[in-house]
């Protein structure tokens, strides 16, 4: 596979390390009342869709960017690649 890195252009997927669903960006608040339930859901349950999947890849043999790749799990077609940092910010994460 080839991942079109937003900063570096197309790179072979073997340069990257895969983590999983991009929902791992949405880490719950550990101090909240329902933290135990929220973290169970966050750490263990997955949509695992057959189709479009937003997922985290790390450019381990490259610039060490974490990327959010939108890829179809039936065809492997990649429709979008974003810097995970940008995605995290749009999802309200900061410090």
């Amino acid at each position: 596979m080839i991942i079109n890195h937003p900063l570096l252009g197309p790179r072979d997927a073997s340069e990257f390390t895969y983590l999983g669903d991009a929902s791992l960006i949405d880490r719950p608040d550990g101090t909240a009342e329902n933290a135990a339930d929220a973290f169970y859901d966050y750490a263990y349950l997955r949509d695992n869709p057959a189709g479009e999947h937003r997922e985290l890849w790390y450019h381990e043999a490259g610039d060490r960017s974490w990327l959010v790749v939108t890829r179809n799990t039936l065809t492997h077609e990649i429709s979008k690649v974003e810097l995970a940092r940008d995605v995290a910010r749009t999802r309200g994460r900061s410090k």
Binding site: T17, I25, E60, R64, L83, A84, R85, A88, R93, K95
Partner: peptide, 19 residues
């Protein structure tokens, strides 16, 4: 060494992007 570095980058970029 490799997996810890990767994990720390994940925390930095994905969880606390404005640090």
């Amino acid at each position: 060494a490799v997996s810890v570095y990767r994990h720390m980058e994940f925390v930095r970029q994905c969880l606390f992007p404005d640090m």
